[in-house]
Structures are given as C-alpha cells and as structure tokens.
C-alpha cells in the first residue's frame, strides 16, 4: 500500500553517505537499499516520514520533515496552533504507584 505520490520530504545526500546501512536497518518500508557501499532510495512514495533514518544517520546524509501523520492532530494544530500531536500524550504519570 502506498500513500499519495511525490509528497514526501525525504532527502538523501549520496555524497555524505558512507554506506553503513543504518537506514536500511531502521526503515520499516524498505525505502533504502545498499549498493556499491552507498545507500539509495528504492521508491520515495513508500516513505511515511517517520524519521527513523534521519535520527540514526550519523553522517547527516538523510533529512526528512517527520511528524504526526494524523488528520485530527493536524486539524487541531491548524485551529489552535502548535505542533500536531495526537491526543495520545499520556500526560498523566503512568503506573502511579504510591
């Protein structure tokens, strides 16, 4: 299943890539593949902008504008400002033991 085509903000800078393979390890949609010790993008439309690759790329070769892809959260942030956040904050302290 793919979402809208050509909307992802994912950017890969091959010149910074060292071919460590971290992005391949963390991407849940197989967006990256390694060939000749360089990462490349297989299909951009598979990217869901979760941001795992960018967070874990030690060499700053990947950037993506990641965030909550949830309609209700984005509507709330449009109405009230602030970052989209989907109600599952769990603000209260969990396991309130003693």
């Amino acid at each position: 299943m793919k979402y809208l085509s050509d909307v992802t903000t994912l950017k890969l800078l091959p010149e910074k890539c060292t071919g460590c393979g971290r992005c391949v390890e963390v991407c849940p949609h197989g967006v990256f593949k390694l060939s000749d010790k360089k990462a490349s993008v297989t299909d951009r439309d598979l990217c869901m902008e979760c941001g795992a690759c960018a967070v874990n790329c030690e060499f700053g070769a990947i950037s993506v504008n990641s965030g909550v892809g949830c309609a209700a959260a984005i509507i709330n942030s449009m109405l009230y400002g602030g970052e989209p956040s989907c109600g599952c904050d769990g603000n209260k302290k969990s396991a309130d033991c003693c």
């Binding site: 979402y3 309609a71 509507i75």
Partner: peptide
C-alpha cells in the same frame, strides 16, 4: 475516513497535510 490516516502504518504528515 481521513481520520484513519492517524492509525495506518504507511501514511505520512506531508500527505495528510495536502489532503486537509
């Protein structure tokens, strides 16, 4: 149906923004 984007495993923020 658009609300379901928050529960899927493959939709991203840019796409939902565009739809909205």
């Amino acid at each position: 149906a658009l609300q379901f984007t928050g529960s899927t495993t493959f939709t991203g923020m840019s796409g939902v923004n565009k739809e909205l």
